[in-house]
């Protein structure tokens, strides 16, 4: 085998590794976002949900992928939190009461549950967009510097 072929072969292996890594990252990013969002859901600073989205999104330099990663990560993180709380407590009754107070109609607690989950997805999407956008911007900045 010539040295040229060996280099090509090595390059190919390297590319495959990167591809595999990217593939893993593609799936890992939402998982990372999910874990962080779920953990942060136990803190009183709800604003950090967007941070979880940013971290998940930062795995990508394509903003569309970032949106999806953040959306899935934070959305499902909050969904799991809500499911756990509903199954281990009587929060539904409380949400029904709050629904009555805010919306003026009883039995509207489910609306808040759905709203919270949807907002979790939305915060994730916003964070993911920001994360991936920032990464993309950094990459573009690097490329510009290299080209110069």
């Amino acid at each position: 085998m010539s040295s040229k072929t060996a280099v090509k072969e090595e390059q190919k292996t390297q590319n495959e590794k990167i591809e595999r890594f990217n593939k893993i990252m593609f799936y890992a990013a939402p998982a990372v976002g999910f874990v962080i969002a779920f953990a942060l859901a136990f803190t009183p600073v709800w604003h950090l949900a967007i941070l979880a989205g940013i971290i998940a999104g930062a795995f990508y330099n394509k903003m569309k992928q970032g949106v999806v990663a953040g959306l899935i990560g934070v959305g499902f993180g909050w969904t799991l939190y809500v499911i756990i709380k509903i199954s281990t407590s009587n929060i539904e009754a409380l949400l029904n009461q709050v629904g009555g107070i805010i919306l003026g109609s009883s039995g509207m607690g489910w609306l808040f549950i759905i709203a919270v989950i949807i907002l979790g997805f939305a915060f994730g999407a916003l964070g993911g967009t920001l994360g991936s956008g920032i990464r993309k911007l950094i990459c573009l900045q690097k490329e510009t510097k290299q080209n110069e």
Partner: peptide, 16 residues
Amino acid sequence: LGELLFPGNGLWNIDE
């Protein structure tokens, strides 16, 4: 509403 309704806050933390 964030402090009232979002996970980790308000309603979700009340010790029923």
